[in-house]
Each structure stands twice: as C-alpha cells, then as structure tokens.
Design a protein around this nucleic acid. Structure first.
Lengths: 130, 130
DNA sequence: CGCACATTCAACCACATGGTTGAATTACAC
DNA sequence: GTGTAATTCAACCATGTGGTTGAATGTGCG
C-alpha cells in the first residue's frame, strides 16, 4: 500500500513541473492537437517539443493516435485525477480546521497512545503512495 | 496573467516529484520534526536528506525554525493548496461530463477541422499559469 | 575548556534533463 | 517515382539532480 503507485506519481509530478508541458496540457483541453500544433507556440525546435510530448505521454497524461504522417494527441486526465486526489489528503492542513488539527496532533504526540488507530495515519487511503 | 506564478508551480511540482520528499511531507503532517528525524527513515546520508529538505523549503512547502543546534521543520500547506487549485481546472475532464465533453470536442473536430486548428484559441482563460 | 552532537558546506561523481542540429522514416500529393 | 511534409532518431552539449564523503560550523554539556 505504501509505495503503491509511487512511480506513476513521480512521473506525473515531474511532467507537470515544466511550464512548456503544462501549457501543452492546457492547449489539449481545447481538443486534439498534432505534434506540430503543440510545438508551434513554443520557441524551441520540433524535436525538443516532441520530447516534451513524450514526457507527457509516459506520464499517461497524453494519448497519441497516429493518423497517416501526423500524430494526434489528446489529453488523458486520469493521472491528473490521481495526483489531485493525492493532494486532497493535505486539504485539511490548509483549510480552516488547521489549528484544531495541529493541537490534536500535538496531543497525540505527547500522550503517545498505544492505540495506533489515530496516531498513525492509516496507510489506507491517500497520501500513502510514499 | 498567463505566466503568473509559473516558477512557484514549477518548484512545487518538482519538489513533489520525489518519493523521499513526499514521504517527508507526510511525516510532517504528524507534527514538527527535526532534520535528523526526517532523515532517519531514508537510506541515505544526512547531507542528502538535508538537500531534500532544502528543496521542500525553497518550494515553500516546509518552514524551518532553528532552535539551538537542531532545526525544527513544519509543514506549510499553502503551496499544496495552490497546485491543488491548479489541478482543479482539469477536474471537469475526469469527472462525469467527460464523455459528453469528448463527444463535443470530436464534433467540432470533425466539423470544422481546418477552422479550429488554425484559429488559435485565445490564450484566454484558466489554468493559465502557463 | 574540551568534547560530542546536529546540521550544513564543499567537492566530487553518475546520470537525467532540456536543448540543439542533421539525418532517417514514413506518408501524402503530383 | 520524386519531392515535400510531419515526426522521430541519434549524437552531442550544458546544466541540474541526487547521491557520496570529509571537513566545517555552531550549540549543549560535563
């Protein structure tokens, strides 16, 4: 459970860490685009853009359909949903209940309960990729 | 507007693209931790762990309070909220309306291929950090 | 004071990343 | 078939990343 889809999350976050690639994703929200179309707005060679697209593809964010000599790319939002959900685990830390939560954690910490039910986050659900 | 907090998003996504760092973040949800405590579970030198923490720090995900010879780290969830929000833009692509949306896009595509392709979409709206 | 502890710094290394250019591949169009 | 368009491949380069080790810094302690 811990270390479940770690590598997927690695590659997705890495793919998203580049502005060029994020821009390509945004472009793909408008519909399918060819490699050339995705490359065009960016001041770089086609080969460079092609590499970026390949990064997005290996992260599962983009699917490609080869149509004759052109490659049509479309957005696959699945991995975005995955990391969005991953991030949601931290939501309570930035939403209002933060202070209350912090107190709670400190309490547990100090008390050092034997009941690991609330001490340890259940490696059940989210955030537990790593 | 476009390219607003691009660099912040870059660094946050990059910080999140490493399992060691994600694990440290998760650990910090339990409360403050020293550098040594954060390093301990990971099979690497203290110096290496220290670098990871610095990456988290420069991404704004961790704040550090120096207390004598120990450095206390605490989670700062703000940047997580930022990228979570960034990802939310894509939510509609993975939630229910996806199929309808896809059909819509295909329609446009088929109908007015040339028109749509060459009329660049206005770099108008959202998700437009980059 | 003098030593041990917590952490960083500096130098180094292997490998990945993001970019380039020029040639190769493949498909369409005449 | 020849030529051209869309894309990738391969080699190369500069820089970044993640790790190491050993020395340096600074603090707490007897």
């Amino acid at each position: 459970m811990v270390e479940l889809h770690t590598h997927e999350i690695d590659t997705v976050f890495h793919a998203l860490s580049d502005a060029t690639r994020r821009h390509m994703l945004q472009e793909l929200t408008q519909g399918e685009r060819t490699v050339g179309q995705l490359a065009e707005p960016h001041a770089m060679s086609l080969a460079a853009a092609s590499k970026h697209i390949k990064v997005l593809e290996s992260a599962g964010l983009v699917r490609r359909e080869i149509q004759g000599r052109t490659h049509l790319c479309r957005l696959d939002p699945g991995p975005l949903a995955t990391v969005h959900e991953w991030l949601s685990f931290y939501e309570r830390f930035w939403s209002g209940r933060l202070d209350a939560l912090e107190r709670l954690l400190k309490e547990n910490d100090a008390r050092k309960t034997a009941t690991e039910r609330d001490t340890k986050l259940p490696p059940s659900k989210p955030g537990n990729d790593t």
